[in-house]
Design a protein around this nucleic acid. Sequence first.
DNA 1: CGCCAGGCCTGCACGC
DNA 2: TGCGTGCAGGCCTGGC
Length: 271
Amino acid sequence: MPELPEVETTRRGLEQRVAGQKITGVIVRDRRLRQPVPRRLPALLTGATIKSLARRGKYLLIDCGGGTLIVHLGMSGRLWLVDEATPALKHDHLDLVLAGGMIVRLRDPRRFGLVLWQRGDPLLHPLLARMGPEPLSREFDGIALYRATRNRSAAIKQVVMDAHVVAGIGNIYANEALFRARINPGIAARRMTRARCTTLVEKIRETLIAAIDAGGSSLRDYVGSNGMAGSFQNNFLVYDRAGKPCFACGTPLRGIRQSQRSTFYCPCCQR
DNA sequence: CGCCAGGCCTGCACGC
DNA sequence: TGCGTGCAGGCCTGGC
């Protein structure tokens, strides 16, 4: 479910309501995520105060003073604030009970998500340490993408989805940005010119910012941290539109598979 | 029933 | 021999 814009929407929604709040209790109902939820989490977090929420790629970094709670939402995860009277349902695996009477709740039916604890600098965690630049940072520019694509025979879409190249570009936004950049998702990354790299970086940024402004995309059961649904799914130009006319030229869009992921593109506009 | 789904880590085989 | 790379598999539930 959540890609970078959805994670960022979650971060913004939660931060303003939980920063400065004390955690009075931690309820772990199911430890079985992609990795087991640390057993000592309640001991570590009870009594701690949430300082701030940051994001690295699709990882949420909840600074709790003595350490950072690192949360990844996987495919079906959702982190949001509920009233303490809200009953926990089947897939509500973790609650952070706050002093103010609210609960930060993690729901993740597919359990591809991750909850980790890191002392010290969270960016040093092995899963984060070798990630590529943030797509919205200055560090990620045409030159950086050009360098990262040299000697890579893999398709540009796969390279752009490689978190070691640039953080947090998922399947939907890779598809959308490539369409906006008029680049065929299947071309070998090494064949990208400098100019096309610059264009693609611009379009990635443009797409992510538009999606964040729309509160993310709501697919299936996704809703933001305040329970409100994002609306960017209404602005998809190619994602999930196989066979439908290209908004630019009318040609039926194609749906193919690349590395077991679905790709959508316009065979006419994207070369 | 089978297939599909927004992620991403791991391990293996391969080629330089 | 040792890497970087590319690919397949696996982790799960739910919806069509």
